[in-house]
Design a protein around this nucleic acid. Structure first.
Length: 497
RNA sequence: GCCCCCAUCGUCUAGGGGACUAGGACGUGGGCCUUUCAAGCCCAAAACAGGGGUUCGAAUCCCCUUGGGGGCACCA
């Protein structure tokens, strides 16, 4: 294993304002992989500085989703750690202290402009077709005067004093140097009038204090990237490695997924939300495999990855800069691959909740016997029960016309089923091999193609045109059930002929 | 409008100057196997956005154009 990185301290820092989706999950995955492969730490931090947007239950969903994916964090709001607290709303004073420090050093300033003034300013600028930005009114204030107004209890915010000339060059790990004209920078608010820091300050302070070595985040942060670098430099801190991960686009490739589009996706059996994916019958290892390959590629020869593989082979150097359209049919493919890669025992365990959800009374030992029958046939776990309803039904709802074999009539079908019944009831052993051999011979004797007889039997025994392999199904069903279903089928046909 | 980023088959990608008649995967079409459905195997169609440079040589480096995406809050 090659460690290209020193032990990395990486953080996943979502804001608990909505549901846990693919974009966040992929970031967390890469965070986790980097931490694990370098022998570092994976930290969970909640960025909840905007109490207005806080969504109850969001933190819980985030943590459950991460655990489901197998991304256990080493430090976090729930388990603590050496840099606690890991929730920004509990770190308010820290940010204020650092903001004041910036003001004292002349790198930030108090601003007393009201929200109303800023509103009208923006409107005016829009009218004049100018870019919306702060006009710097309070930047010109004498610091002593500003201090006096603060002490007098006037409401204020703290703004970053952005450079007005020159160029800021910031280095992104994937894209290289990114430069902006400082003249295009705005004096961004660092601390709101409610005393809470905004992301720009809080995240930089925490990343520094928590010893973060690599900042992995979505590319939507690229426009504010120079600002962040400027803030870090204003403090004189060492910069972490910045890694802006490519955005996920909707399947059409036309832009980011909207809330409404996300909801509509569910109707097609897909979702960008992690907790939905679980409900829909996707395996966490398949979701991980799929996500890992959106924005990162290994080589020509491998596409199937376990978490252990990914930990070994992931590298920042192979990250891709361009946005990726989400491809759900590839998720289906990976889910199938991972389902087939599971042991029967593991698959049985995974299947259990989906059977219970449908009201089927099963346990793991039974599912372990069912598993091989459906393993190659299901794309998602939730499809499994419908493949095997015939195992649990008391009686099959069959009509005589269902029981007519291909190129056969009611009479010949009845004769064939009766013969099958006779032969099967006399069989000493009830195994897949024994019944199959017996029925193949019977087909010959009746001058039927194997497919004709088997199709007929399939219908009589499972009530389904499409089912798992016939003889395996019969073995699982048990001799007496199979015989009684055959008897019933013969009766049904008898009544109609 | 302004700023930033991106650009290889429909999609995800390999490719980091000659090994490229551009490779793989998903999906699509066809075939084989076969008791249904799958799985598996084989085959096929399918791309370097355009234009300038640099170079003996460009998918690979530079520039422009075009296209796409993202951002412009006392949100994150």
């Amino acid at each position: 294993m090659t460690h290209q990185e020193q032990p990395a301290r990486v953080r996943f820092a979502p804001s608990p304002t909505g549901r846990f989706h693919l974009g966040g999950a992929r970031t967390a995955l890469y965070d986790f992989l980097l931490a694990r492969q370098s022998g570092g730490q994976f930290i969970l931090r909640f960025e909840d500085t905007d109490q207005k947007r806080f969504v109850p239950g969001a933190e819980q969903e985030l943590m459950e989703g991460l655990r489901w994916l197998g991304l256990q964090w080493d430090e976090g709001p729930d388990i603590g750690g050496p840099y606690a607290p890991y929730r920004q709303s509990e770190r308010k004073e820290i940010y204020q202290q650092y903001a004041r420090h910036l003001v004292e050093r002349g790198q930030a300033y108090y601003c007393f402009c009201s929200a109303e003034r800023l509103d009208t300013l923006r409107r005016l600028q829009a009218q004049r077709k100018e870019n919306p930005r702060y006009d710097g009114l309070c930047r010109k204030l004498d610091p002593k005067e500003a201090n006096r107004r603060v002490e007098a209890g006037e409401p204020f915010v703290i703004r970053f004093k952005a450079p007005t000339q020159g160029v800021t060059v910031a280095k992104d790990r994937i894209r290289g140097e990114i430069s902006v004209q400082n003249a295009s920078l705005d004096d961004t608010i660092l601390v709101k009038s409610d005393g809470l820091a905004v992301y720009h300050l809080a995240a930089m302070v925490d990343d520094h204090l928590m010893g973060i070595t690599h900042v992995l985040r979505g590319a939507e942060w690229l426009p504010t990237f120079p600002l962040h670098v400027l803030i870090v430099r204003a403090f004189g801190w060492e910069e972490p490695e910045w890694v802006h991960l490519p955005l996920f686009l909707k399947p059409s490739g036309k832009g980011k997924m909207s809330k409404r589009e996300s909801a509509e996706l569910m109707q097609d059996g897909y979702s960008i939300y992690i907790s939905d994916l679980k409900e829909l019958g996707y395996l966490p290892q398949a979701v991980v495999n799929w996500m890992a390959l959106m924005g990162w590629g290994y080589d020509d020869h491998q596409e199937f990855f376990t978490m252990a593989d990914l930990i070994e082979k992931f590298s920042l150097a192979r990250l891709n800069p361009s946005p990726a359209a989400i491809n759900f049919s590839k998720l289906d493919h990976f889910n199938g691959l991972h389902i087939r890669a599971m042991s029967h025992g593991a698959l049985a365990e995974a299947l259990l909740p989906y059977y219970h959800r449908q009201g089927f009374d099963v346990d793991v030992p039974l599912l372990k016997r069912i598993a091989p029958l459906i393993q190659e046939r299901i794309v998602t776990l939730d499809e499994a029960p419908q493949w095997t309803t015939f195992l649990f039904k008391e009686a099959l709802a069959l009509q005589p016309q269902d029981l007519i074999g291909k190129d056969m009539d009611a009479s010949s079908s009845r004769i064939a089923l009766q013969a099958a019944l006779d032969h099967l009831s006399g069989l000493p052993a009830w195994t897949k091999d024994a019944t199959e051999e017996e029925m193949r011979t019977l087909a010959d004797d009746l001058h039927l193609k194997a497919g004709q007889l088997f199709g007929l039997l399939r219908m009589a025994v499972t009530g389904q045109k499409v089912s798992p392999p016939l003889f395996e199904s019969m073995e699982l069903l048990g001799k007496s059930t199979v015989l009684s279903r055959l008897r019933r089928a013969v009766e049904l046909l008898g009544a109609s002929t």
